[in-house]
């Protein structure tokens, strides 16, 4: 780990703050490019950095060696000792100057073409398949951390950080969006890689709608909004280890997904429902999603410019 962050990377704006630390847009004064600096403060003892932090950073660096086109580059990792008890670890990531939120807002009416949506989805799922096959969960996929270059290339950002953060940070209250969270996270049940597929489903729908699918204001409200679309799940699918009872929700039937996502094709709707499946064990995987018939027609392989 290098010790010279402040010299090579000059922060120019704060772009994220949260429970875990601060994120800056910065300029790499050597290359002239923008980068994203993500810092975590970790407690240290006489043995130096906690082994869990070292492991997580090592995992991110290992991923980097694959040079996957659909995840942002990890360019550098720096550690600065701040006191005997605290070290600041700074991860330097590639910065892409457009996110999916902006990309969708910028698309002229009536929105993105079906082919463009399919291409974005394919790239997103390629990135996710890569992360999941390396046992990395994103846990917080949303349009703000799905980046789109001017050439239309999708790059996932902010993956693999959740664990570093949650290991060491006393969680301070911050506003985090619930809109892309799957039921098992909202119910505080156990969860794994299927969480990212749920979020991907929400984002898939949003590409057509150009507005979010489920805009809940609290965990319970978010679940209620989900059930208004997918219906109340059967009793035997409700997780047993949760405090919130199924009885808190009205017995809603699933509604046709086309009521909420018009212009989606039959096969697109089918894939969307496979992603928005309540039971994480029955939810489609990223790899299987890529093999879904939705992606099988050939005319959509073109990468159009933004």
């Amino acid at each position: 780990m290098a010790h010279a962050t402040s010299i090579q990377y000059e922060p120019v704006a704060e772009i994220g703050g949260g429970a875990y630390g601060t994120v800056y847009k910065a300029r790499d004064t050597e290359s002239g490019q923008f980068v994203a600096l993500k810092s975590v403060r970790v407690q240290t003892d006489q043995n130096g950095l906690p082994i869990s932090t070292v492991r997580e950073v090592a995992l991110l660096r290992r991923l980097e060696q694959f040079d996957h086109p659909n995840v942002v580059r990890l360019m550098d990792v720096c550690a600065t000792q701040r006191s005997d008890q605290e070290t600041k670890v700074t991860l330097v990531f590639e910065h892409v100057d457009q996110d999916l939120k902006t990309y969708l807002e910028r698309a002229p009416a009536p929105g993105l073409s079906p082919g463009r949506i399919k291409d974005l989805m394919r790239q997103l799922l390629c990135g996710l398949t890569f992360l999941h096959s390396n046992r990395v969960m994103h846990r917080d996929l949303k349009p703000e951390n799905i980046l789109v270059t001017s050439q239309g290339q999708v790059k996932l950002a902010d993956f693999g950080l959740a664990r570093i953060y949650s290991c060491h940070m006393a969680l301070t209250p911050v506003v985090v969006t619930l809109w892309y969270r799957p039921p098992e996270v909202l119910l505080q049940s156990s969860y794994a890689t299927p969480v990212d597929i749920w979020s991907t489903g929400c984002i898939f729908a949003e590409m057509f709608r150009r507005k979010p699918l489920f805009c809940g204001e609290s965990e319970v409200d978010q679940l209620g909004k989900i059930f208004e679309v997918i219906g109340l799940p059967p009793e035997d699918e409700w997780p047993t280890d949760v405090t919130l009872s199924r009885k808190n929700f009205p017995p809603l039937m699933p509604r046709p997904i086309a009521d909420f996502v018009s212009e989606i094709t039959e096969q697109g709707a089918q894939l969307l429902l496979n992603m928005l499946t309540f039971d994480p064990l029955k939810r489609i995987s990223a790899l299987n999603a890529l093999e879904h018939p939705y992606f099988q027609d050939e005319e959509t392989l073109t990468q159009t410019k933004s």
Partner: peptide, 10 residues
């Protein structure tokens, strides 16, 4: 303007 998201024409 110097730090804006360059892709955000709006």
């Amino acid at each position: 303007l110097q730090v804006m998201m360059m892709g955000s024409t709006p």
